[in-house]
C-alpha cells in the first residue's frame, strides 16, 4: 500500500513551518529584546520533537496497515539534523561570535555543550548516508551505523537535563517518550519470540 501523494509534500511544509516563523520574527524584529534565547530554544525544541517523531516510526509501522510510514522516516531524520544544524549555527552566531578559538573552551568547560555537540557529530554521518545509494552500498552496516540515533537520543536527554536550572517539567516531556521508545526496542530485541 502506498501513501497518498500529498503526504510527503505536506510533511515537508509542516517541518519548515517553525523555521519560517523564526525567519519572519527575525525580519520583523518580533522576537523581543533577546532573540538569542528564543532562537536557541525553538531550534533545539524542534530538533528534539522531530527526533521523537523519527523514533516513533518503527514502533508504529509494526501495526497492521501502517507499514508505509517508513517512507517518512528519512525526511523526519533529515529535518532533525537540519534543526540541530540551525541550533549549532545560532550558538556560534550569538554565543561564540563565530570565534573559532572559543569553541574548544566551550566544549571542554560546559558539559551540556559537549553532549549536544557529540549528538550533532553522530548525526552527521547518518545524514550523509541517508540516500538510497548509500543504503545499498553499506548493506547490513547501514542498519548498524544508524543505530547511532539511539545514542543521539540519550545525549539529547543529557543535554536538556544539564541545561535545566530548577524546573524539570520540560525535560520530562522529552525524557519520558525517549525512554519509552528506547525501552520498546530493548523489549523487541530480548523478547522470547
Amino acid at each position: 500500500m502506498k501513501l497518498h501523494p500529498s503526504v510527503k509534500p505536506l510533511l515537508f511544509c509542516f517541518c519548515l513551518t517553525p523555521l519560517a516563523v523564526l525567519v519572519w520574527g527575525i525580519a520583523g524584529q518580533r522576537l523581543g529584546p533577546d532573540p538569542a534565547e528564543q532562537i536557541m530554544h525553538v531550534t533545539g525544541e524542534w530538533a528534539g520533537r522531530l527526533l521523537l517523531a523519527t523514533l516513533l516510526i518503527t514502533p508504529l509501522r509494526r501495526r497492521k496497515g501502517w507499514g508505509q510510514l517508513l517512507q517518512l522516516r528519512r525526511m523526519l531524520g533529515l529535518f532533525t539534523f537540519f534543526y540541530a544544524c540551525c541550533h549549532l549555527a545560532m550558538f556560534a552566531h550569538f554565543f561564540l561570535g563565530w570565534d573559532a578559538r572559543r569553541v574548544l573552551e566551550e566544549l571542554l568547560e560546559r558539559p551540556y555543550i559537549t553532549a549536544g555537540f557529540l549528538a550533532w557529530l553522530i548525526m552527521l554521518p547518518l545524514a550523509l548516508t541517508s540516500t538510497n545509494a548509500m543504503q545499498r552500498r553499506l548493506r547490513a552496516n547501514w542498519g548498524r551505523l544508524h543505530r547511532g540515533i539511539y545514542l543521539v537520543a540519550l545525549l539529547f536527554i543529557l543535554h536538556i537535563t544539564w541545561i535545566a536550572r530548577s524546573d524539570y517539567g520540560e525535560v520530562l516531556v522529552y525524557a519520558v517518550p525517549v525512554l519509552v521508545l528506547l525501552g520498546w526496542r530493548l523489549r523487541q530485541r530480548f523478547s522470547p519470540r
Binding site: 533577546d34 538569542a36 566551550e106
Partner: peptide
C-alpha cells in the same frame, strides 16, 4: 570566574538583535 553553563567573559547588552547581537 567561569560558570558551567554560561561563559562570563562577554554579555549581550539588551536590546540585542539577530544582526547586531550587541556582545
Amino acid at each position: 570566574v567561569d560558570h558551567p553553563r554560561w561563559s562570563q567573559k562577554t554579555e549581550r547588552r539588551l536590546p540585542s538583535s539577530f544582526f547586531e547581537p550587541n556582545r
